[in-house]
């Protein structure tokens, strides 16, 4: 995985102030990184709450607890690029409008779906699979188990879309890839910049 010249030597870098964030929308004081994910990390997952069967109340509660696209973005935009000293957010590989969240229908404890479309920095980015893997791992670790995660390359952004998408959707391949020391190490390094 180590190489002398990166695939894309001069990627476009977004300034931190250009990244989408909750703080801008609400114009409140900046949330410190220490407490930024408390709502995700510390809240008791509603799927495990056996007593939440009383209809309306439970549903409202679940709606409060439910994640939105911005929170998903915050979780994955801080993942580092495998070859540049920048995050996937700064490189615009992860984009807020390309995060699609389908909350649980009917039953608040039912399945939710997160679809993330990634835009690799150049057309032939050989590291697309690794980036996808890191994003998938990050979400699997951070989200409650009723979230099903789909990672895809944004249409037209990558030469081997189908192969990459198929690999990233294959649970068995993902599990085996993470047991590969080299690949697992690269992913671990990419996730070091994530606050948790």
């Amino acid at each position: 995985m180590q190489r002398d010249t990166p695939d894309n030597a001069n990627p476009t870098i977004l300034n931190v102030s250009q990244l989408p964030s909750r703080a801008q929308k609400r114009s409140t004081a900046r949330v410190g990184s220490d407490s930024k994910y408390d709502s995700v990390v510390l809240s008791s997952p509603y799927w495990s709450d056996a007593s939440s069967d009383d209809g309306q109340e439970a549903r409202e509660e679940a709606a409060d607890d439910a994640l939105d696209e911005q929170e998903i973005y915050d979780l994955i935009s801080t993942v580092s690029d495998p070859e540049h000293p920048h995050t996937l957010g700064e490189l615009n590989v992860v984009r807020l409008p390309d995060i699609h969240l389908t909350p649980p229908r009917d039953n608040p404890r039912g399945l939710a779906n997160v679809l993330v479309e990634l835009t690799p920095t150049i057309n032939h980015c050989s590291l697309a699979t690794v980036i996808g893997l890191a994003v998938r791992v990050r979400l699997e670790q951070a989200l409650p188990p009723n979230y099903r995660i789909d990672i895809r390359m944004k249409e037209g952004s990558h030469a081997q879309d189908d192969q990459v998408n198929k690999q990233l959707a294959d649970k068995e391949r993902v599990a085996a890839a993470l047991e590969n020391d080299t690949l697992g190490g690269v992913v671990d390094n990419m996730l070091k910049t994530c606050v948790l």
Binding site: W47, R109, P145
Partner: peptide, 9 residues
């Protein structure tokens, strides 16, 4: 049967 293993696959 839904949620055979709770939220898990």
């Amino acid at each position: 049967v839904e949620d055979g293993h709770g939220p898990y696959e």
